[in-house]
């Protein structure tokens, strides 16, 4: 059984908490309802550190839920990618540093890890269990697609290990 201790003076806010007074597009409202369903699932647990990335995802939801959010014709943030992104973060081992989240022009959420100027790894969270990745390790490069089932694909984990190993 997993338990979490939170100091009584610590103002903890669930990453799934949304203030209801914020303006939301129709897409955002759909996502909001989906997340409320997630938050009622008592089997999930998360650490305080996780809350930062969920706040980032919430920011993305606000900023990118309408088409052309980048001014260059980008597609709106995809509902499927959003829910898959949450699943991805939940599946990510706690020993892996949290990534930065962003949205790509096709509406997919991407998680990016920056270790240095030429040490970057990026994973796009697609619809229906597919993740697309690319990495730059000094002068070596990798890219590909992987099936994302119940666990983070081994290729992704191997590349993250490579990124943070030196």
């Amino acid at each position: 059984m997993t338990t979490t201790c939170i100091p009584s003076n610590y103002h903890y806010q669930s990453p799934f908490f949304f203030s209801s007074d914020r303006g939301m597009s129709e897409t955002a409202a759909v996502l909001h309802r989906a997340l409320e369903r997630f938050s009622r699932d008592g089997s999930m647990s998360f650490t305080n550190d996780d809350s930062e990335i969920f706040e980032e995802l919430e920011d993305l939801l606000e900023e990118c839920s309408s088409a052309n959010w980048d001014g260059y014709g980008a597609e709106a943030l995809s509902l499927d990618s959003y829910t898959e992104a949450i699943r991805f973060i939940m599946a990510l081992p706690k020993t892996i540093p949290l990534p930065e989240a962003t949205v790509e022009p096709d509406g997919e959420i991407a998680f990016e890890w920056f270790k240095g100027p030429r040490r970057i790894f990026s994973v796009s969270i697609g619809n229906r269990n597919v993740v697309t990745y690319a990495g730059l390790f000094s002068f070596n490069k990798v890219n590909g697609e992987e099936y994302f089932g119940d666990e983070i694909p081994k290729t992704i984990m191997d590349n993250l290990e490579r990124l943070f190993s030196f």
Binding site: D59, L60, E63, C64, W69, D70, G71, Y72, G73, A74, E75, E100, A101, T102, V103, E104, P105, D106, A110, E112, F114, P117, I120, S122, A134
Partner: peptide, 25 residues
């Protein structure tokens, strides 16, 4: 030109790769 905060990191002083991904066309 970047008009989304998500396309760069001010603290890390870098442009994010996604800022250079082309749209559908």
């Amino acid at each position: 030109f970047l008009i989304s905060k998500k396309q760069f990191s001010k603290t890390k002083n870098l442009v994010k790769p996604s800022a250079f991904l082309p749209p559908k066309n």
